[in-house]
Write a protein that binds this DNA or RNA. Structure first.
Length: 423
RNA sequence: GGAAAGGUGGCAGAGUGGUCGAAUGCGCAUGACUCGAAAUCAUGUAUACCCGCAAGGGUAUCGGGGGUUCGAAUCCCCCCCUUUCCGCCA
């Protein structure tokens, strides 16, 4: 949600900002509706003021005078009803349109049509070199008996997986590794609700512009399955006014992520790169506007620290406007080197959503000076556990089909150093 | 899922159709008293939006929505949430 006052003053800014995100806005329509809403509201409030005034008179009047007054009130009432019936649909349409305005990208973000125009910020680590033909993660995982997609397909359909034995332990190790690093930096560990209300899903910016197609929904309960812990962590301070002294507030949450993957039918059909359910460790920060730039840097730096600790080659991508989506004002992705595909694949993403989500969430803070302002919200992946396992398995594989365990994870796997098939 | 009781300002807690945005207490802020503090006293103390350059004015808000009424915190309906008991379950 943007500030409508700013829209009134500078409609072109929003039109252009939306266009950069490939979203067309009828700004003229919004301004027209806004003018009408305000005019009607002023008129309506005048009538209500009359009514309120008259009610006081009636209370004091003697019985005869009262009858007369009540009669005249009925006439005023009818006028109020007419105005109200005009006002409501217009106000609703306006709100609907306002919710579809994307968060404008920050000035340093490159304007571009699609992910093809994203910028590579840096590449870190040398691409893994093999003296043999590397296998892909599914072949490795199946041979090791730690990934089972065939039985998962029987049980749940395509795009599901079981992690078994060391596979499950590897996932837990990654989670604990991420948690241990972030907790040292003051992130509050969290597990979160996996189902959220329609209000929350909308506030986080995931329902507009076809977003609901990607989300599992339970009509009977009017609840949505989260696609990321961001959605429940971000709503943690729904309708709250925080204190400036508390900020920044940082969480690191673990949750499964549920995604319908509608429209991605041909893509990544083999293995666990793209599945309907995966686990993720996610960071989320609430900051003042002044803090949010540095916070975005911090989230990215933690992501890189985690990847470097793991020893997986990666690159950092800065998304262009066309790839940002509705709530993000700036987004960096980290892509891990995936040998079997001879390319980098996205494993992390960190966004600043400035005050876009907080306006919808009504999460504010009181400044030292006593002002009430909206917080900034930022999110960042610590590990998408499934995809990180893919990166680890493929980059750490050896010619005999075993997989070395990265040193950073060994303490969380009971000191084990190699994944080998079960005897 | 069944039964019951509730939901009022930062907190506690009155208020069952009119002058109630709401008593009172606590808390908080400012001032007085004091060398200073405590205590005491005085005054003040919600949020959002609209109109306005401003001063100021107006509207809405007693869990949410709808209804009855000239008028609703108060009456009626629906929903949400909390608590307790039962059932079920991890």
């Amino acid at each position: 949600m943007i500030d409508i006052k700013v829209l009134r003053e500078n409609p072109n800014f929003y039109r252009d900002a939306a266009a950069a995100k490939n979203i067309e806005l009828d700004v003229e329509r919004m301004l027209e509706l806004d003018r009408r809403v305000r005019a009607l509201k002023t008129e309506l409030e005048g009538i209500k003021a009359q009514k309120n005034e008259a009610s006081k008179d009636i209370a004091k009047a003697d019985p005869e005078a009262r009858k007369v007054l009540i009669e005249s009130m009925r006439l005023i009432d009818r006028k109020a009803e007419t105005l109200e019936s005009e006002y409501t649909p217009i106000a609703e349409e306006l709100e609907e349109l306002l919710y579809r305005i994307p968060n404008p990208a920050l000035p340093d973000v490159k304007v571009g049509k699609s992910d093809a125009e994203n910028e590579v910020v840096r590449e870190v680590g040398d691409k893994t070199v093999f003296t043999f033909a590397p296998k892909d993660h599914l072949d490795l995982g199946q041979a090791l008996g730690i990934i089972d997609t065939e039985r998962a397909a029987r049980v749940s359909g395509a795009r599901f997986a079981y992690f078994l034995g060391d596979g499950a332990l590897l996932e837990f190790a990654l989670m604990q590794y991420a948690m241990s690093i972030a907790a040292k930096k003051g992130f509050v560990p969290a597990t979160v609700p996996h189902l959220v209300s329609a209000r929350v899903m909308r506030a986080m910016g995931y329902l507009e512009h076809g977003g609901h197609e990607e989300i599992y929904y339970f009509p009977k309960d009017n609840l949505y399955l989260i696609g990321t812990a961001e959605q429940s962590l971000g709503a943690l301070h729904l309708d709250e006014t925080l204190d400036e002294k508390q900020l920044p507030i940082r969480y690191i949450g673990f949750s499964p992520c549920y995604r319908r993957e509608a429209g991605s039918y041909g893509k990544d059909t083999k293995g666990i790169i793209r599945v309907h359910q995966f686990d993720k460790v996610e960071m989320f920060s609430f900051t003042t506007p002044e803090q949010s730039e540095a916070e975005h840097e911090l989230l990215l730096s933690i992501e890189e620290e985690l990847m470097q600790g793991l020893g997986v080659p990666y690159r950092v991508i800065k998304q262009c406007t066309g790839d940002l989506g509705l709530p993000a004002a700036r987004k960096f992705d980290i892509e891990a080197w995936i040998p079997s595909q001879n390319t980098y694949r996205e494993t992390h993403s960190t966004s600043t959503c400035t005050d876009f989500q907080s306006r919808r969430l009504n999460t504010r803070y009181k400044t030292q000076a006593g002002e009430t302002k909206f917080v900034h919200t930022l999110n960042g992946t610590a590990f998408a556990l499934g995809r990180t396992m893919v990166a680890v398995l493929e980059n750490y594989q050896q010619e005999d089909g075993t997989v070395r365990i990265p040193a950073a994870l060994q303490p969380f796997m009971g000191g084990k150093t190699v994944l080998a098939p079960r005897a």
